[in-house]
Design a protein around this nucleic acid. Structure first.
Lengths: 201, 201
DNA sequence: CCGGGTCCGGGACAAATGTCACGGGTGGTC
DNA sequence: GACCACCCGTGACATTTGTCCCGGACCCGG
């Protein structure tokens, strides 16, 4: 019996997946979470064999939680399930020690199969996505550049960003300029868009 | 037997819902679509009793399709299922003649129940959402303001927008300024954010 | 016919933004 | 030690953006 932890914020999706996977004879859902911060505690409590994690979650990112989980429970395999097949996400998932990476397109039937393969020690990755991740190259953005860019989403002004990141407005503009240059874009919004597109956020 | 059409772009979600609803004894999925443009043709072909539509779809919006569907197949009830409980979405759904409006949070169990209630002629709307929609008031944005704002997503410059909408740059700035004023925001990005938040896009 | 609204543009101005050059600091590597 | 990358900040500059003013066009309801 495969013990599974399911982390997914959308209630309907979570419920549907839980019901579906519960129908498999060899899978048992031991925990369901809708919040990133709850993943590790729940896992330590319920000792799942596989953790199926969404990336975009309230609280903590599924990728962060994955890294933690791998460190604290090496026996628990991590399978990332996400809406967006962004190259940077895949890369980060691999670096975090995930064993598999699925996108929410593609048929449901793959899911149970992927869980079994991951538990057997295999790696499950869409080949096309893997190629895209390699060709995209690594994240060129500095930590600070990422911070500033992340704070610039939804139209914050330089002053807002400076306050949020505790930096001087002038410095913020320098970082923004650097990020714009590295992403080959023309303004901050295009830069955040490009960065998100690649999973660099 | 309730004949159901299911429109949802995310493959896994669509598959999961189809399997789930297929388990109900009185529901039969007669069509599955992942594209907005395919909704009406498929419906005319398969004559469903209820159409379960996502809003954000490739091709045509589920709301547009809903209006069309109501006009061409008055006997087919429309149930909107969406990720975002935006006030403007609900309002537009009602104007399009939808009988129900569900968000993808909330438990899966509600879904089958909602389908049956809709078919029985009831309206299914989250009361909290209905209140929000009323308190938010109607869409204050002009058609042109919406166009310009929509063209301003992902950081296009004034020149880009002007080219996309076939207007003078000066006019574009005037519309942007008007939209910023009406949304009580400070710049175009906050304006698009606010407009999207309210479902005014 | 006279408002009032939307549509479309222009001009002028202040503010915000993006760029560049420049400083100093740290830490790591060859 | 020299080099390099990143960190943080300043100042100056051109461009872009947001605002407010002003026109004229149209259509509709009173």
């Amino acid at each position: 019996m495969i013990k599974l932890l399911l982390a997914e914020d959308q209630g309907m999706m979570r419920g549907a997946l839980a019901l579906l996977l519960g129908l498999e004879e060899d899978i048992e859902i031991v925990a369901q979470v809708g919040d990133g911060d709850a993943i590790v505690p729940k896992a330590l409590e319920t000792k799942p064999d596989v953790a199926l994690l969404d990336i975009e979650l309230p609280g903590r990112s599924g990728l962060d939680a994955a890294a933690d989980l791998r460190a604290r429970m090496p026996g628990c395999q991590v399978l990332i399930l996400t809406t967006f097949g962004r190259p940077g996400y895949l890369r980060r998932a691999m670096e975090a020690g995930a064993a598999g990476f699925l996108v929410k397109d593609g048929p449901v039937e793959d899911l149970a199969a992927a869980i079994r393969r991951v538990l057997a020690g295999e790696r499950v990755i869409d080949p096309a996505l893997a190629a895209a991740a390699l060709s995209a190259g690594p994240n060129p953005l500095t930590q600070r550049e990422r911070d500033v860019l992340a704070a610039a989403v939804d139209g914050a002004t330089v002053a807002d960003i400076a306050a949020k990141v505790h930096l001087s407005p002038a410095t913020v503009r320098n970082y923004l300029s650097a990020a714009i240059g590295k992403t080959q874009t023309r303004n901050r919004m295009e830069a955040v868009r490009a960065a998100r597109q690649n999973g660099w956020l």
